[in-house]
Write a protein that binds this DNA or RNA. Structure first.
Lengths: 173, 173, 173, 173
DNA sequence: GATGAATGAGTTTTCATTCAT
DNA sequence: CATGAATGAAAACTCATTCAT
């Protein structure tokens, strides 16, 4: 991966995340990255290839975050780590997550494969904790995480920590 | 509103919701609606005018749903109605909500005005119910509603009702 | 077919025939026809669609010329008409034939369907005239016609009529 | 001539012959030849230089074939050799001839210099054989050769030998 | 009100060519 | 000699918008 390739990837991530994939022209990406437009196509084939390259990186990052949580042996700890996750999105990952969330709504871009292992681990945790319906409880937690991530990505509410506390309380954490 | 105007609005809603606003050409809208392309511009001025017309309808529908809930005097009942809302999105409103949710991610389309009265009512309800931090609790509920709506709009999970039950339990409903 | 459509078709035929299909840009076609470039795509879908529209016209013209010859009852007369055909390409059809002949060499543009009825008629004629191998004789004539057309389209030789006479003699016409 | 140079020349010949000069990108030539794109320009200057290198080889080959025929003293034998030529194009020369014939139709690529000595020899032969109009007869033969080559390069007809016989008969060979 | 031909500016993509290594 | 990253100009194509009818 040359330096210019990385510059393209970086500019594209930023622009796609903030202005939308369809609304961002490759010419704008090139200009922002300070490279010729042709270079985008030489390296990534076409605009979609550029998006895929970004999404591959993003999925890899997501997989790593999930992996770390899943390996937590203690169920309460696992749950806690998970619930805290959306509240801890760092600046460096902000745009990546914005893009991932925005693209969900594009017909052909919804992919659940990353979530699967997380589901399994959560069901297991809720079972250990004696919940009546671990499956439903898992779906509920994942739904909430989606909502929290959405809120935090779109409008950084004040009093984040209080909200997190109120949430943890629901699971007696 | 003539019949052709409605056909345009309907086709545009469907296409914008499923394929995205930026990715949908006015020519495709016209073709799907079975009208000439020029007619769109005669009636709605430009592409954005068409979107605004749709969003106005949507906001009006949302306002009505929220109004009904807000007027509920009993706090537990209000909470229950609210939590059930995303689980009761009917087929006829599916595309409208999909569009509203997808557009959130477009830089210039995020609008919180509809949510404000709901927030007020919710804070009030949580106060009456003796919650320690009604503000935080309100944010939490709204976040969850977002997550639930997202999940239900994107991939209709099975066991919707069990998930709803697990949720209600959290609020002792 | 609007006037601008015809202007496009006409300019494209001229340019494709003289400079080659691949070497002629749609922008040049548009400029020559005095229309906007977009119009080409609106009417013909893409560059290949434009070529197909031209070729359809050409095939129709070719079919008509062949039809007239085929219907000749007298075999000698049929043969004569056929051999004279390449020598009688009028100015108004010159470009069309140039394009047809040039495109033969493009991998995916070789089409023999127009020739088939001609073959049948020729075989029949040679049979009536008592030739030993009408099939081979037919192929020979068609080959020659190709050669003659090529020569006449590429470099208008002098003494056309003498050449034609020499040819007719071979078939005692 | 290094091995890579030959690989480039060979790939270019094949691609130019089958897909056309204008439609073949230098990048495709490089890929097919298994060399870097830059190498083409180092060796041949530009795309046209590559074509010229190929055409030079081709013309040389053509010159040799023609030379051998021209030197035949006996006019009937000369004629026979000539007529047989297109029927004897070997696999190893197939693409070369296809390219030569296809390029004829390109405005700036028509070159008759190779044919000149052949014309002279043919006129002489027909004179010796007592033909009434040796010039016209020569043009006729050359036209036919063109047609035969075209047919044989584009669609290898069956019964080649019968066609050749029918042809020889016309010249009492 | 409604059509559809036409435009022009912009978008994606291709490609011959250059150049540092 | 050879590579492959990089460029810039031009190509194909899209699309919101206008306008005569």
């Amino acid at each position: 991966m040359t330096e210019k390739q990385e510059r393209i990837l970086h500019s594209a991530l930023r622009l796609f995340a903030t202005e939308g994939y369809a609304s961002t022209s490759t010419s704008k990406v090139a200009k922002t990255a300070g490279v010729s437009e042709g270079l985008i196509f030489r390296h990534f084939g076409n605009k979609e290839g550029l998006l895929n390259a970004i999404m591959d990186q993003s999925k890899e990052a997501a997989r790593q975050m999930v992996a770390e949580i899943i390996l937590t042996p203690e169920p309460k700890e696992l749950l806690r780590k998970l619930l805290e996750m959306p509240f801890n999105i760092g600046k460096e990952h902000y745009e990546m997550w914005r893009l991932v969330y925005a693209l969900k709504w594009q017909t052909d871009q919804y992919d659940t494969s990353t979530q699967e292992p997380l589901k399994v681990a959560l069901i297991n945790a809720f079972q250990k904790l004696g919940y009546a319906d671990p499956d439903a409880e898992t779906e509920l937690v994942l739904m909430f995480m989606d909502g929290a991530a959405t809120a935090l990505l779109l409008h950084e509410p004040d009093r984040k920590m209080e909200i997190l506390s109120a949430l943890k309380e629901k699971y007696k954490l």
